[in-house]
Design a binder for these strands. Sequence first.
DNA 1: GTCTATAGAAGGATAGAC
DNA 2: GTCTATCCTTCTATAGAC
Lengths: 203, 203
Amino acid sequence: MTENDKQTEEKIFESATDVFMAKGMDGARMQDIADHAGINKSLLHYYYRTKDHLFNAVFEKIAGQMFKKFAPVFDENLTLEEKIRFFYREHITFLQNNPRLPAFLLNELHRNPARIKKLIQGIDINKIWSTLEAQHKDDLIKYNITRETIPQLMTSIAAMSVFPFLAKPIIGSLMEKMGYDFDEYIEERKKYAADFVIKAMKK
Amino acid sequence: MTENDKQTEEKIFESATDVFMAKGMDGARMQDIADHAGINKSLLHYYYRTKDHLFNAVFEKIAGQMFKKFAPVFDENLTLEEKIRFFYREHITFLQNNPRLPAFLLNELHRNPARIKKLIQGIDINKIWSTLEAQHKDDLIKYNITRETIPQLMTSIAAMSVFPFLAKPIIGSLMEKMGYDFDEYIEERKKYAADFVIKAMKK
DNA sequence: GTCTATAGAAGGATAGAC
DNA sequence: GTCTATCCTTCTATAGAC
């Protein structure tokens, strides 16, 4: 593969990412992607054969990024509270740089549930739970966390950081109407979400 | 308008709602809607002229339902805690009956931000805040709620009930993998979310 | 009011020149 | 590897008979 190949192929991939993120699989047009990349429509087919192939390439990459961010939390030598604060700082910073990612991902999963199995096959929640159990036995007792309440707690933690980006069209507009700034709100959320969850967990 | 007219028009509307909810504006096909309603494709145009008109009719109805559910909370003669418990019981029950509604709504708003202004024009957050301020002066002090923290708190409350439905493709699959039942998880959430938020709010 | 038939446009994909 | 021209399918929309 020559240097020029790589440039074009990458340019296509990046343009496709932008357009698919903005319009979704169904709404995106091959012509838009070509225009966005400043190249001819035929070249898309030359490199990726079909729209489906191109979309899949984009989706896999995007989906991978989303979940990598959850992993490191469980490797650190930190208290449970520190992990929660660490998670929100890292995860919300990631979402600040990829604000459309959650909406794109979830929407495509709603439309095509078959993708899910492949997406979550790498996630072993039981292993995550065992790790937490080993590292934070005292905290789990202190906070009254059991295998029964794990789904409720985990989804609540995720909701606090992801929801503002999913509901940004509404939240952002309402805030504008009231004179608040969405970006400031997000920045503050790194601390707010952590405080909120930690207080909620206490017995 | 004859009785038969109404039957056909309503049948079209209901089929359109189902198909648009499942596939979105871009993914939906007029043929699908016609098949789903058991009628001819031309009839869709006879009653609604274009796909756009039909979609708009569906969207307006759906969007209206979503926000009506928030209003009554502020009229009741209840304590702040009771209102929160009341809200989660009502709102999650509504979402149990309309699980795809939030994803549909937010996705279309992401794709077409112009809709938002019309959607939120009826919502006067300042008025809501004034009502709360008048009704729960003591509670606001007790819970340390101010105009500055209202966006963080309001979005956290909404996140707790809406997020599970937005992320259902992932949450549901992960739970299945671990032997949990999504519907049970949702039923339990009516209480869990209320307890969680009320604890989090305490100083 | 409902159907059949078809026009007309859009979009994905390919052939072939360079 | 990149472009122009074009095919072919799909989909929205309309015309016209009943």
